[in-house]
C-alpha cells in the first residue's frame, strides 16, 4: 500500500516534472540544439560558389582553421577576451564589493545604475563613444581645455579603443553575478574571522573571496564567452583594423559566401570556449571551493 502510493506519487511527480520541463526542452531543442547540429553538419559540408552548401564529409574547412592567418586571429581574440575578463574582474570586484557591503540603503539605486546602460542598444552606446572620442569630441575638447594637449589626439579607431569599448560593454555582466554572491554573504563570518585573529586582508582572501567564487566564475564566463565572439565593437571603435573571430565568422557568412568555413570557425570557437571554461572551473573553481 505504502509502496504503491509511493509509485503513484512518483509517477505523478515525474509527469508533472515532464510537463514543467517540456517548454524549456522544446525551446532548447528547437532554438539551440537544432541550429547547433545544423552548424556542425554545415562545417563538414562544401560551400557553393554562390552560397548554399552541399552536405558531406569534408574536413578541409577544419584544416583551413589552422591556416596561420586565421589561427593568429583566433589566438589574438582569445587573448583580448581574456584581458577583457581580467580587467572587468579587477574593476567589477571592488565595485560589487562596495555596493554589497557599503551600499546601505543606496544598494538598489546603485545596482540599478550599473544596469541602466542595458536599457539602450549596444549600437547606440558604441556610437556614443565614437562621438565622445572623436577629433572634435568631448574627450579631446576637455583635454585641450585643461591644457593637457595642444591639438586633437587619436583616441578612437585604435586597439585601445576596442579594449575600452569591450570593458565598458561587458562590465555589468561581471558586476551583477559578483554582487549577487557578495550580497548573500553572511557578515558574521567576517566578524568571526576577525575574532579569531585574522587581519582584514586575511579575512578577505581566506573567507570573503572564496565564498564569492561562484560569482567570480559566473561573471568571468558571462564576460569571456561573448567577448571572444564579439564583432560589432571592433568594427565600430576599431575602424575595422582589429579583426576578431566574430568578425571572421561574419565575413565568411556574409561576404565570402563560405558557410562551411564559417560554420567550422564557429564550431572551433565553441569548442575552444568550452575547453577554456572546463579548465577554469576545474582548476580555479572547484579546487578552491573544496579547499574551503
Amino acid at each position: 500500500m505504502a509502496a504503491q502510493k509511493g509509485v503513484d506519487k512518483g509517477r505523478g511527480w515525474s509527469l508533472g516534472l515532464a510537463g514543467l520541463l517540456a517548454p524549456a526542452a522544446f525551446w532548447l531543442g528547437v532554438f539551440f540544439l537544432v541550429p547547433l547540429l545544423l552548424i556542425l553538419a554545415y562545417s563538414f559540408g562544401t560551400s557553393g560558389v554562390y552560397g548554399g552548401i552541399t552536405l558531406g564529409f569534408n574536413p578541409e574547412n577544419y584544416l583551413k582553421v589552422f591556416d596561420p592567418l586565421y589561427l593568429q586571429i583566433i589566438v589574438r581574440s582569445t587573448v583580448i577576451a581574456l584581458l577583457n575578463t581580467l580587467i572587468c574582474l579587477a574593476i567589477g570586484y571592488p565595485l560589487a564589493y562596495f555596493i554589497a557591503f557599503r551600499g546601505g540603503s543606496w544598494k538598489t539605486a546603485l545596482i540599478l545604475l550599473v544596469m541602466i546602460p542595458f536599457w539602450t542598444s549596444l549600437l547606440v552606446r558604441a556610437y556614443a563613444w565614437v562621438v565622445i572620442l572623436g577629433g572634435n569630441g568631448l574627450a579631446n575638447r576637455t583635454l585641450q581645455f585643461l591644457g593637457i594637449t595642444d591639438g586633437p589626439i587619436t583616441l578612437i579607431f585604435t586597439p585601445q579603443a576596442v579594449m575600452m569599448g569591450l570593458v565598458y560593454s561587458y562590465l555589468p555582466f561581471m558586476v551583477l553575478p559578483l554582487y549577487a554572491s557578495l550580497e548573500k554573504f553572511d557578515a558574521r563570518l567576517k566578524e568571526a574571522a576577525q575574532d579569531l585573529g585574522a587581519s582584514r586582508w586575511q579575512t578577505f582572501w581566506r573567507v570573503t573571496f572564496p565564498l564569492s567564487l561562484p560569482g567570480v566564475i559566473a561573471g568571468s564566463i558571462l564576460v569571456f564567452i561573448p567577448s571572444a565572439g564579439e564583432f560589432v565593437i571592433p568594427d565600430l571603435l576599431g575602424g575595422s583594423q582589429t579583426v576578431m573571430t566574430g568578425n571572421l565568422i561574419q565575413q565568411q557568412f556574409l561576404n565570402a559566401r563560405d558557410w562551411a568555413f564559417g560554420s567550422a570557425l564557429a564550431v572551433m570557437l565553441a569548442v575552444l570556449m568550452l575547453g577554456a571554461i572546463l579548465i577554469y572551473v576545474r582548476r580555479i573553481g572547484t579546487d578552491r571551493l573544496e579547499g574551503v
Binding site: V243, Q251, N255, A256, R257
Partner: peptide, 13 residues
C-alpha cells in the same frame, strides 16, 4: 571571391 576575402582579412588583421 574567397581569395579576395582572405587578402582583405590578412590586410585588416
Amino acid at each position: 571571391t574567397r581569395d579576395y576575402e582572405r587578402i582583405f582579412t590578412e590586410v585588416k588583421s
